[in-house]
């Protein structure tokens, strides 16, 4: 059974903000299917009582003192921007309302 359909790839592409072509949908569907079926092997391990590892360093509480350090000038900050107006980053119109914090 296929792990992933063409429609699912289209959904993933949209979530990932990738305007994939029709042709790519076919290619990716096949490739992702192979990859996902292969990586699904992790499910063979019985690990119900095993804690997950998110970090390999045994550190906790790495904190910074609340002291101001110099940052970038606005010129530096905006130097790589594709489009700038009024010392701000200009973007095309936004359709979605803020999803908020």
């Amino acid at each position: 059974m296929a792990a992933i359909s063409r429609e699912e790839v289209a959904h993933l592409a949209r979530l990932s903000r990738l305007a994939v072509t029709e042709e790519e949908l076919d290619t990716f569907a096949g490739q992702l299917d192979v990859i996902l079926q292969s990586v699904a092997q992790v499910g063979e391990v019985t690990a119900a009582d095993i804690p997950p590892t998110s970090h390999s360093v045994p550190l906790t509480n790495v904190l910074r003192e609340d002291v101001v350090v110099p940052g970038l000038t606005p010129q530096e900050a905006l130097s790589g921007a594709p489009d700038v107006a009024e010392q701000r980053f200009r973007v095309p119109r936004i359709l979605d309302e803020d999803v908020a914090s």
């Binding site: 940052g71 900050a77 010392q87 980053f89």
Partner: peptide, 22 residues
């Protein structure tokens, strides 16, 4: 706080745009 959550930029209100960034 004096500085942002994850960097040393100041948090004061107002200011010219993109002047408190790193």
């Amino acid at each position: 706080t004096n500085t942002k959550m994850f960097c040393g930029c100041p948090t004061d209100f107002g200011g010219e745009p993109n002047t408190r960034v790193c």
